[in-house]
Every structure is written in C-alpha cells, then in structure tokens.
Write a protein that binds this DNA or RNA. Structure first.
Lengths: 135, 135
DNA sequence: GACATCCGCAACTACGGAAGTTACGAGAAA
DNA sequence: TTTCTCGTAACTTCCGTAGTTGCGGATGTC
C-alpha cells in the first residue's frame, strides 16, 4: 500500500459487504483479504462506523456489517467519512502579504469549487453500483 | 508554513514579480520576505524555471526574473510546474481483487475529471490578474 | 462462572516526504 | 582576484501514516 490507502481499504471493504450484506466480517478476515493489519482495518472502518455507514458488533460471532442498504451508501459518504479533503483547509487568519493572500484565495476558491463538483459526482453513485465495472 | 507550501511560495514570488517585472530578486530577498530559506526558494523556483516561467541569472547582480509577460503566465502553468496532482497517480497494474479495482477506477476517473475542470479554471486566470483581490 | 472471540484504544516503532540548514562548486560581474 | 549569485548534494528535523503489540470491555459458547 502507498497513498490514499484509507480510501482504498474503505472502498474495498464496503464493496465486498455490498455484495453480501447479511454476512458479518471480522477485522482479521478483512485485513487478511486486503493484505494489511486488523488494527489498521479497525482504524479505517471505525471512521465509517462513526459516519453511520457500518456497525460493529463485539464478542463471539461479532464483526462488521453495513449499517444500511448498500444502495443508499454513496461514494461521497465514504469520501466525507474519511476527511479526504482536497483543499489545504486554509488555517491562516494571520494578516500577511496582500499579494500572497489574493493569490491563495483565488486558488483556494477554485479548489473548493472543484471539490464540490467532485462530491456531487461521487454522491450520484452508490457502492452497490460502483462495485460493478463501469459500462 | 505548513502544507501546500510549495504552491504558496511559488504564487507569492510570482505575484510580486508580476507587479514589477523589470526587477531581479535574489533567493535571499525572496526567502526573507516569505519567511523561509534561500535554498528552499531555489528548490521551488527551480521548478518554475524548468517549466519556462522564470529565468535565473548567476553572478553579481543576478537573481530571478519572469521569463515572459505576466499576462501570459496562468495559475495552471504554476500548478502544473509543481506537479500538484490531486490524483493518486494509480501506480498499480497488479491484477488484484476485481471489486476493489472497479471501485478505485470509478473514483479515480471522477478525480481526474475534477482535476481537469480545475486546470481549466486555473488556466483562465493569469498571475497578473490574480494578484489583484477578486471583485 | 470459565472461556473464547471480537472490537476499541493506547502506545510504540518504522518509514517516507518535505522543510530547513550547511557546505561547496560553477558562473558572472566589478 | 574578489564578490555575488544560483545549483546541488548531504544532512537533520518534523510530521503523518502504516504496522505492531498489548490489554480492557463486550458478547457469545460451554
């Protein structure tokens, strides 16, 4: 794994769960299939749980399940659950050089627009649809 | 400085140069104004030089200048010169799980579309325009 | 109740990318 | 020759993330 591995792992897990929603899967099973570690799986899927996309059951025969119908979980839900923002968040507020500020502002606005457009596209496809190869 | 500092530094430098294209500036002057280091400035501006946006002159009274008219240098030129890609580059080629592949492919396509749209917007504004506060 | 099986979470190490820093060579002008 | 500047290598520091170990809490089975 390299970059965007959180998103990859999340999509991968959700994709399989969408194929068989009744089955519960343990972190160990998912980690084994994805070639990573159970704790890493719990970290990533924990975000999806916090976002209401998954439920986790403890104890014997426990594991992970979809919290709702896979048709109602969109790619945007996953993207947002993982905080995968494109924009640098613009943490300044320090009154710096006006030229720099004007330029960064312009670029930031365009990036936010691009991300909004991306989210709109992502929101149009559910994981149930997206797990099938594109036509 | 924190993140996207290369882009910030590049925009900042170009913005000032666009305001007075005749003046040459040294790495030390730029670094001082930007609150960073001359070597860092040379690293970042070196990319802009490689992209044909700046020229650097060595020796006495040397320094950095715009390589062409500031009206002809767009924000997209800067963005591309710095390799600021949104997409994870998709370095795989390994024949992995089909479900994972389908999902990643869908998201990757959408991200590339979003970036294409962003570049189109960035290409519509020159640094000469963008250095003035937006209307 | 004893035990096994899970998740949740804290703490740690390992690795990689980027900024920052120092040092030195190459080119150009006074 | 001296001085000034970029170009670049080498190094340290910092930060985020993956990976790992350990243990407590919850939930089943026996």
């Amino acid at each position: 794994m390299k970059r965007n591995s959180r998103l990859s792992l999340a999509l991968h897990s959700l994709g399989h769960m969408a194929g068989n929603p009744a089955q519960t899967r343990t972190s160990a099973q998912i980690a084994d299939h994805a070639g990573t570690n159970p704790v890493v799986v719990r970290r990533v899927l924990g975000r999806l749980r916090a976002a209401g996309l998954l439920v986790a059951e403890k104890g014997h025969a426990g594991g992970w399940r979809l919290a709702r119908d896979p048709e109602t979980i969109t790619l945007a839900d996953v993207y947002l659950a993982l905080d995968e923002r494109l924009t640098p968040e613009a943490e300044e507020a320090a009154p710096r050089c006006a030229v720099e500020h004007a330029l960064e502002r312009r670029v930031a606005v365009m990036m936010e627009e691009a991300e909004t457009a991306l989210l709109k596209r992502l929101a149009a496809i559910s994981i149930a649809e997206a797990r099938e190869p594109a036509l």
